[in-house]
């Protein structure tokens, strides 16, 4: 842990007796429920959904920044990512299951409509990937496959 510099971000979390977690930092607050729940009626995200959301935000923000610097106008950009756990039953605490609760792979697509041609857009996308901290962290340990799909 580097001690000679400030952290790049810091958050605090509080758990309450209903099993909810409230995370706060700077001027924001997020509520989360569970690690990787499948309750479709639950409005609050799970920790896994927050992780994948962080990746989506990281990459879309990064692409936007690189395009702005290059003077490329984005008309629309949308990303869809799915996460696959090594063994979701381990995350649920099923006794006797083999494997781990880790995210094994993240697959998805990025649809972008912009002024740039496909080659220029790919170049900007690669720059965004290199400079995205969440992506750079996850790619060390997760099978990441996000396909850039320019939309004419």
């Amino acid at each position: 842990m580097p001690t000679d510099r400030e952290p790049s971000c810091a958050v605090r979390g509080r758990w309450d007796a209903r099993g909810e977690v409230r995370v706060s930092g700077r001027h924001f607050t997020l509520d989360a429920v569970g690690s990787a729940h499948l309750d479709h009626d639950e409005a609050r995200p799970s920790a896994l959904e927050l992780l994948v959301s962080a990746l989506v935000a990281d990459l879309l923000a990064g692409l936007g920044r690189e395009c702005q610097r290059a003077g490329v106008r984005i008309h629309d950009a949308e990303m869809a990512i799915s996460a696959y756990l090594d063994n979701p039953l381990v995350a649920l605490g099923v006794v006797g299951e083999a494997g781990t609760a880790a995210v094994a792979s993240l697959n998805g697509s990025l649809y972008v409509s912009s002024d740039a041609d496909a080659e220029a857009l790919a170049s900007l996308w690669n720059l965004a990937l290199e400079r995205a901290p969440v992506h750079a962290t996850l790619r060390r340990c997760v099978d990441l496959d996000i396909e850039l799909k320019p939309v004419i």
Binding site: L92, G93, V95, G96
Partner: peptide, 13 residues
């Protein structure tokens, strides 16, 4: 609830 991967483990428990 406690989940088990098979019935042998559950009966043991």
């Amino acid at each position: 609830c406690v989940f088990y991967t098979n019935y042998e483990l559950q009966v043991d428990a």
